[in-house]
């Protein structure tokens, strides 16, 4: 067990490497109840989210979700989150899921930004959140869902969600595999967890969650971006909705200035050319100047070390990483490294 975002979380349930492989090849389940669900109610919910988030919820149809950064006025990332536009008849028009370690400051920021809007924020600490992930996750977990939700859940496109009563299912995740993130009231959530294990879905801890998301090229808040770095230097420019130009989201001015000047850095993928493991904080030496590993580790799927690193924007191709005092050959490339069980880099 390790402390994580104010929670005690299991690093693994026996073998981190085995859990990783189970998710790539079959199905695993993660208890991600530490993440905070915030339901957004009120007549101004849409207008407020369009001000709060760098991505644009006006693009969503009911039942659709998007990934977005929530920025400060300087364009730094306060948090990354998923915003769901809920289906007609749901209790609130939107649902947002934020990180655990940032949840207090997120709520404070959201509340401050709500001034002048007809809006109510409803933190949902009463819900259990479980992620079932892997090529066989949906097939194995479908029978465990409330019957009223089963067919709709199986029919979901990626980044869409269905709900019935207090049960909510999104075809989302943090592993690069197919799967669902399931929200349930506490008692039903515990029963779902037990039932998942009983049908052979592997319980997975934070360790596998980190190697899976790193292989999938997904950022971890607090490591790959934070309040001092913008989406433009964090590989997240694709999540910024510049159009319509008149949408004044928080941080837009700073981001537009940075974009006009040209960002000095970018977030790149790294593959180590020999044995050893790249770790966060190590120096990356490139022909265009030095960079820094923001997330590094061992890729169980590729059987070598991979990393995300913030490097000068012109850096490309061969480089070196300083590991325990020695410069080791590595290669810069565009993440993701692995998706849907397949290695995407050579």
């Amino acid at each position: 067990m390790v402390p994580f975002g104010g929670w005690d979380m299991p690093l693994h349930y026996g073998s981190q490497l085995e859990e990783h492989h189970r998710v790539r090849r079959d199905a695993g389940i993660f208890d991600v109840s530490h993440m905070l669900v915030v339901d957004v109610a009120g007549a101004d919910a849409t207008a407020w989210l369009r001000r709060l988030l760098a991505n644009d919820v006006a693009r969503l149809v009911p039942g659709q979700a998007l990934y977005s950064c929530m920025l400060n006025e300087e364009g730094g990332v306060i948090d990354d989150l998923i915003a769901y536009r809920r289906v007609a008849g749901a209790a609130t028009p939107f649902r947002v899921v934020v990180n655990a370690g940032t949840s207090d400051k997120d709520l404070a920021w959201m509340s401050a930004a709500a001034a002048g809007f007809d809006l109510a924020l409803q933190p949902r600490r009463d819900l259990v959140m479980l992620a079932v992930q892997g090529p066989r996750a949906c097939e194995r977990a479908a029978p465990l869902l409330p019957e009223s939700l089963r067919a709709a859940a199986l029919a979901l496109e990626p980044f869409h969600a269905a709900e019935a009563g207090d049960a909510f299912v999104g075809r989302t995740g943090y592993t690069g595999e197919d799967g669902w993130e399931v929200l349930l009231p506490a008692a039903a959530g515990l029963a779902f967890w037990d039932a998942a294990l009983a049908v052979g879905i592997a319980p997975c801890g934070l360790g596998a969650r980190d190697t899976l998301r790193l292989e999938a090229g997904m950022n971890l808040y607090g490591q790959d971006m934070d309040e001092a770095t913008s989406p433009l230097v964090s590989g997240l420019a694709w999540t910024v909705a510049w159009e319509p130009a008149g949408r004044a989201f928080i941080g837009r001015g700073a981001l537009e200035r940075e974009r006009a000047a040209g960002p000095a850095q970018r977030l790149a993928g790294l593959v180590l050319g020999e044995r050893g493991v790249m770790r966060r904080g190590q120096r990356v030496v490139t022909a265009a100047g030095d960079g820094l590993v923001t997330s590094g580790g061992f890729s169980p799927t590729m059987n070598c070390s991979i990393a995300l690193a913030r490097v000068p924007v012109a850096a490309a191709g061969a480089c070196e990483v300083e590991i325990r005092g020695a410069l080791r050959p590595a290669r810069l490339l565009r993440p993701p490294f692995v998706r849907h069980g397949r290695v995407l880099v050579s």
């Binding site: 690093l11 693994h12 981190q16 490497l17 360790g207 050893g276 493991v277 169980p300």
Partner: peptide
């Protein structure tokens, strides 16, 4: 240490 991935 946890699970080993390399031994030099």
């Amino acid at each position: 240490l946890g699970e080993l991935v390399f031994v030099e």
